[in-house]
């Protein structure tokens, strides 16, 4: 009889332990295991692709002489921008034209490029986030490329409504102005 009891799986200590512990396992341990695996998976997703801001680059042409025929096809510049540019002595011109603009997201840890003359690659800006500054600005590593040659590298802090203006090379008697602004 004793032999029967010991060999009966229902009275086996291991079986009994599993039977008593299984509700605990199902109620607490299993969900926590599933959750921790889900959290682990979430942490493995690429956070570097997260968008932490959006920036815009506009390319303007400034000239004191009346625009020639080739320049007439380009759009006039908004009054607000014209006023802003005329407020800076080195960028004060009689006439402005807009050659192009590009808006790109800023990724948390990936480099991205702005091509305001798209599809032309004559003027390019590469940028990478370096996090937010304590006053809410976006800190960047920014490179200015002209004709596939790196001209300048800097680490500005961009703020909304406070653009970064670069007076670039001259072309056809006009000056190129690159405006980079944080729009989001």
């Amino acid at each position: 009889m004793t032999l029967f009891t010991l060999s009966n799986p229902a009275h086996n200590p291991n079986t009994m332990m599993i039977r008593y512990l299984s509700p605990v396992f199902m109620a607490v341990l299993l969900p926590s295991l599933l959750l921790s695996s889900a959290l682990a998976e979430q942490s493995h997703s690429d956070k570097g692709k997260e968008i932490v801001g959006k920036i815009k680059a506009s390319l303007y042409l400034g000239s004191d002489s009346a625009p020639e025929k080739w320049a007439e096809k380009y759009a006039l510049v908004e009054k607000e921008v014209t006023g802003q540019l005329r407020g800076i002595q080195q960028m004060r011109f009689q006439h402005y034209r807009k050659l192009g603009a590009d808006i790109q997201p800023v990724f948390r840890s990936y480099e991205n490029w702005l091509a305001p003359l798209k599809p032309s690659e004559e003027i390019l800006l590469s940028f990478e986030s370096r996090g937010r500054s304590d006053d809410g600005g976006l800190r960047l590593d920014l490179e200015f490329w002209q004709h596939r040659r790196k001209i300048m590298q800097m680490n500005p802090v961009l703020h909304a409504d406070k653009p970064l203006l670069i007076l670039g090379p001259r072309w056809r008697g006009c000056s190129l102005i690159i405006a980079i602004e944080l729009i989001d």
């Binding site: 802003q84 407020g87 800076i88 080195q90 960028m91 001209i151 300048m152 800097m154 500005p156 703020h159 409504d161 406070k162 653009p163 970064l164 203006l165 670069i166 007076l167 670039g168 090379p169």
Partner: peptide
Amino acid sequence: DNGATVIVL
């Protein structure tokens, strides 16, 4: 005037 950062190359 507007707090812009200006770079003259």
